[in-house]
Amino acid sequence: MALENHEIENLFKLSKLEYDADIVQEFGEKLAQVLGYVDLLSEVNVDGVEPLMHPSELTLTMRTDVVDATAVGRKGIENSPAYVDGFIRVPKIVE
């Protein structure tokens, strides 16, 4: 299944990935190959079949709402590539 270049470019934009013409070409070809393969599913009759979103369809367990030692606080902030005084620094967003 071939994809138009503008569709590939849109996917790169949606995925927040930079691209150039060569990359669009190269990734477009590989993507088309894989999409061609997964089209195999079109021959499966799934009338009346409910989607399975999770393997064991467990009821999710919720822990009690108390603060525990896994709250990472400052250590989590320090994993940011740019932080100042306990805050993550980001580029200017609002002009």
Binding site: I8, L11, S15, L17, K30, L31, V34, L35, E50
Partner: peptide, 28 residues
């Protein structure tokens, strides 16, 4: 990157039912 692109493609409006929803049914 290839997998992110494919994932966003199968989740995008217009393709969600044909790919993602269909795959979940075959999963069952």
């Amino acid at each position: 990157k290839r997998r992110i692109l494919l994932g966003n493609y199968v989740l995008s409006a217009g393709y969600f039912d044909a790919y993602y929803r269909k795959a979940q049914k075959v999963r069952r």
